[in-house]
Write a protein that binds this DNA or RNA. Structure first.
Lengths: 133, 133
DNA sequence: AGCAAAGTTTACGTGCACGTAAATGTGACG
DNA sequence: CGTCACATTTACGTGCACGTAAACTTTGCT
């Protein structure tokens, strides 16, 4: 990490467990904007913050395009009221979807737990039979 | 719906909001096993139960291959102990992943709520300025 | 100066989950 | 018997998120 607080592509890859291809791809999709030192990319603190959000968004099943929208939320500072309102809507929509998804996930977890309990009971019975032989 | 309690491909599409292509694709991937009446597919109650699980699995971001594994959970009846154990492992692994995903989702929801609160406060301030003019 | 390591662009390849088009078959109805 | 809606198979196409290979420049070190 240089004194300007930037990181090379390899340092980024090691730090966040992604490939160079991925970082260049995200730049092409305008999710990251590393500065150039000659021909090389230098990733700033801002790029790192955005990458963290990208990776988390991906874990939630958001597409890169959706993530691009969400990232705009973090750049609201210089926006106009209408722009803020529009972006707010998108975020609220995502929020509702996420809450719904969490609820479904919760019930699915319950069901899976039941399944596991069932499997465990079957296995316990089988062990009994084995032990009796 | 015929008296045998089966449905045609179109009835299935209407009932579950999927395309014929999707149902044939799932059959090719061995997720569904509709019976044939001549050349036509007839989807049974079992197929419908499995389709519901497929669609829910997809909402959780599971791949069709992962879903195929999960579906095996519901067919445990005639399996052997080792098979049950193997399947149990897969389910447990999924369960841990789902719980982790739900936890992440929960914290992401909190953060998004904060963001929305922030946007709302900015918008409120802007309304104040507008009203004062 | 020279060489290897690491970076760059360009561009074709891949896996997944279907979409879409073409050609053909089938069955109920007037 | 015709035809018309709906079904089927076969096979190529698509969008996404990168992987991978080739050819090249730049940088760090001896």
């Amino acid at each position: 990490m240089t004194k300007e607080n930037t990181m090379t592509i390899r340092e980024m890859c090691d730090a966040y467990d992604v490939t160079p291809r991925t970082l260049r791809f995200y730049e092409a999709k305008e999710l990251l904007q590393p500065v150039r030192q000659g021909t090389k990319r230098l990733f700033t603190k801002r790029d790192r913050a955005r990458l963290k959000l990208i990776l988390r968004g991906k874990r939630f099943g958001f597409s890169l395009e959706e993530i691009r929208q969400l990232l705009a939320l973090y750049d609201l500072g210089d926006s106009q009221a209408t722009q803020i309102r529009k972006t707010r809507e998108i975020a609220a929509k995502h929020l509702n979807g996420m809450i719904a998804q969490r609820d479904e996930l919760t019930s699915a977890i319950e069901e899976l737990r039941d399944q596991l309990g069932w499997a465990d009971r079957i296995l316990a019975d089988m062990d009994q039979v084995e032990a009796a032989q």
